[in-house]
Design a protein around this nucleic acid. Structure first.
Lengths: 261, 261
DNA sequence: GCCGTCGCTCAGAGCCCGCTCAGAAGTTCG
DNA sequence: CGAACTTCTGAGCGGGCTCTGAGCGACGGC
């Protein structure tokens, strides 16, 4: 079962409703949803991205080129922009300048090809902005965006730091530190992202396909078997010798739950 | 003027917040954000600069020539100005005179080519202002600006002296001295700036790209490999024979942390 | 109780990442 | 003018990380 180049089957895309249950969504200071503009000339990719962002409870609008991006920004007045560096009409930097003219404090997350990194990205991460290289995972994009928005002063109403907590399991996203019952746990990059996905959806059964679509890059051609493997890695490190928090739901997927009392 | 400890934490944070590390930003005496005007005719450079300064929690406005600089200053009433000496319509010194007419005590940081007008710059800096030569690193610009503002009497000087401390590692920015456990450590200029960047972002994973964008000059064309090299230099000097403070996070970057409690 | 399916884990191959050494080019200073 | 220092490139190496394949155990249907 081979996946097509750009499009994962978007199980989580349909029913794009409010935030994931469990925790309130990241919102603007006045409580209205965060507004994001997605700019990419690949309509499939733009659709997948906007689906993932809507799933966060955010308001999303897409544009396929620089001109409509600027127009869209004028209407939407977005808090953040996901911006492909390579666009059919202009490059992302020119678009950024126009955007900044409309809204100086807008956050920008650049999408760029791996080899183009050294090009003119220099200086971008120096400000509040950030970038991810293609191919990326949706979790990565969402996490980076959340980081940008948080630092830009969103979510003032909740004390939402860069810290995820489920039971006695805690994750500091900025320090990339994970602790269980105070003990430090070392994780590889993939393990870390998988655990982050689980921790952001506690008590919810996640299917292997869902996990694959979310945590792995969209061009990953492999089998769902990797998910089992990495779950097993995680169990060894997170549940080692302790009451288990990662549970298998046969035929459905996996759940992360705090230990029952 | 605010006194520490007498107000609830939330009130203090209400003013400008530094985007990094949650520390309060350098602010004006009344708690409002520092206001900076960036004047440079290269829009990309102006954009990168203003991004970096906004990231400090400051309010930024840009201008591309002398005329709009004076106009912008009249509106913004900036505390500091980052001013390119070479401008399309006039030179920076003329602009400075106009600025001083509006606000006599404004801090000025000149941007200048390496071999240009050393003597006139030298005269200027005698008056309390400062300059950096192109190409510069963003860390350098920000550090110089912070120094100027601090000396000009911006608030928080009690907490934010020219002294950075992480664990038993201490840095005096003005004396350019670094000590670990009281022992003096000699660093080259680049090593010093890299360590300063790490110390200003303790417990936060910094990617190689982030470090490159921030510590190296904006025109540096090289690979992220240099960062690894300089991290290795730093480790030899800072961590030599001691419990390590500089840690590698594979696939993510580097962190500076005080030794485990 | 038997059998098929599903999930877990081990072992290993290949790749990629980060560390280090050595040396060249440029710079500063005595 | 030479010596020491600084900065950066290139190459090699060691090891961690990711993924494949296969065997085995667990679970559930009948």
């Amino acid at each position: 079962m081979r996946r097509r180049g750009t499009l994962p089957a978007g199980v989580m895309l349909e029913g794009a409703m409010n935030a994931r249950s469990g925790r309130p969504a990241l919102t603007r200071p006045d409580g209205t949803p965060v507004r994001v503009l997605v700019v990419d000339d690949d309509p499939d990719l733009a659709e997948v991205l906007s689906g993932a962002l809507r799933y966060e409870g955010w308001e999303v609008r897409t544009a396929g080129d620089g001109a409509s991006a600027v127009a869209g920004a004028r209407e939407l007045l977005p808090d953040a922009v996901v911006l492909d560096v390579m666009l059919p009409d202009t490059d992302g930097f020119a678009v950024l300048r126009s955007l900044r003219a409309v809204r100086p404090d807008v956050c920008v997350l650049f999408l760029t090809a791996r080899d183009a990194v050294e090009d003119r990205i220099a200086g971008i991460t120096a400000g509040g902005d950030d970038y991810v290289t293609k191919p990326f995972s949706l979790e990565e994009v969402v996490a980076r965006l959340r980081g940008l928005l948080r630092r830009a002063g969103m979510a003032r109403q909740l004390e939402e730091g860069p810290r995820l907590v489920v039971g006695d399991l805690a994750m500091d996203e900025e320090a990339r530190e994970v602790t269980r019952a105070g003990e430090l746990i070392g994780l590889s990059p993939t393990e870390f992202e998988l655990l982050r996905f689980l921790m952001r959806n506690p008590r919810r059964v996640l299917s292997k396909t869902q996990i694959l679509d979310r945590v792995w890059s969209y061009d990953f051609g492999g089998q769902a078997h990797v998910v089992e493997l990495y779950i097993s890695y995680l169990r060894k490190k997170v549940d080692a010798g302790r009451p288990p928090m990662i549970h298998t739901v046969r035929g459905a997927g996996y759940v992360l739950k705090p230990v029952a009392r």
